[in-house]
């Protein structure tokens, strides 16, 4: 499979995430779109690591393809920590305003 196919797929998923952040107003959906963007990047990292493995196999150098997958693993770890704190903030927002509309957050302006 050509690497360009994976680039197109990851970009499509990433763009859907960006459009979701721009279009939706529900804070939880916006947060889910951020998760979608992280996953698109993860998929592209794994595809590039396998591309690296395909080129390194011919050159008989030590393959660094496992490093990229460790990197994806750490992205997942940070995403899990981020979700726990972010959802706590959204729950606190809902408790104060009885809504998850992100436009309520503009009161930080004053």
């Amino acid at each position: 499979m050509d690497i360009n196919a994976y680039i197109i797929l990851s970009l499509l998923i990433f763009t859907i995430g960006i459009v979701g952040v721009l279009v939706r107003r529900n804070a939880i959906i916006v947060f889910m779109c951020i998760e979608l963007m992280l996953n698109a990047v993860n998929l592209l990292l794994v595809a590039f690591s396998k591309m690296h493995a395909a080129t390194a196999a011919t050159k008989a150098v030590a393959s660094g393809a496992a490093d990229a997958q460790i990197f994806v693993f750490f992205i997942m770890v940070v995403a899990a920590a981020e979700v726990s704190v972010g959802l706590a903030i959204i729950v606190m927002l809902f408790r104060n305003t009885h809504s998850v509309d992100i436009n309520f957050l503009n009161r930080l302006k004053n």
Binding site: M1, D2, K50, M51, A54, A65
Partner: peptide, 8 residues
């Protein structure tokens, strides 16, 4: 730039 599929 070929991606290695199903092996490795």
């Amino acid at each position: 730039n070929v991606v290695q599929m199903r092996i490795g």
